[in-house]
């Protein structure tokens, strides 16, 4: 029998090494600040953050699967739940909720009420187009990519832009069938 997948990441979160939240927040802030100085264009910064997130995601998924003991998800609904309840808890220390499913079950929203990345942050007028937490969308995209799911992740609501919560829309584009690495008759 497959091990029972944990429904929340609390236990794992309690056992893995953690860093001080302010150190983490300010380090991320310094990265974004530096990107803004280097790239100058807010759009470019968004892209770069997403790419950095992707690169994190494709590595992080392995750590996630190794430590969380989750078994194969039967459908995308379960995947989203695991990301929100276990994934976010494990790596960010917060839990998110999953809402707004469409009829086909391929598109949903992950809502973050609490986001450690944005403590202290306030967007100045010249950075209004910035998706400050764009790294998160990249991480999810990268992680799903590694488990053969092509997804598109976009921000629907951003508390830094005056909304009350953070809302990420995750849209499953296609599920890449796993290919056998060699032919049967060889």
């Amino acid at each position: 029998m497959a091990p029972v997948a944990p429904r929340s990441g609390d236990a794992i979160f309690a056992n893995i090494e953690r860093v001080n939240a302010e150190l983490f927040t300010l380090t991320y802030g310094a990265i974004v600040r530096q990107l803004l100085t280097d790239l100058e264009e807010v759009e470019e910064v968004n892209k770069q953050l997403d790419q950095m997130g992707y690169n994190i995601g494709i590595r992080l998924i392995d750590e996630f699967l190794a430590k969380s003991n989750v078994s194969r998800c039967v459908d995308f609904r379960e995947t989203a739940e695991v990301i929100a309840k276990v994934g976010f808890k494990m790596f960010l220390g917060v839990t998110a909720s999953v809402t707004n499913w469409d009829a086909e079950g391929t598109c949903c929203s992950i809502v973050l009420e609490d986001n450690p990345l944005v403590d202290f942050v306030e967007l100045p007028d010249n950075c209004q187009g910035l998706y400050y937490c764009n790294i998160l969308s990249g991480v999810i995209r990268g992680a799903l990519d590694m488990v053969s799911m092509k997804a598109e992740v976009t921000w629907l609501r951003d508390a830094l832009r005056g909304d009350d919560v953070f809302e990420l829309q995750v849209k499953l584009l296609k599920q890449v069938p796993e290919e056998y690495p060699y032919k049967d008759d060889e």
Partner: peptide, 19 residues
């Protein structure tokens, strides 16, 4: 201090935050 901790605020520049 809260303003200073904002990574997008450059220390020594004008404080434009309406908050």
């Amino acid at each position: 201090i809260k303003t200073l901790l904002n990574p997008l605020y450059l220390p020594g520049s004008r404080i434009t935050s309406s908050h």
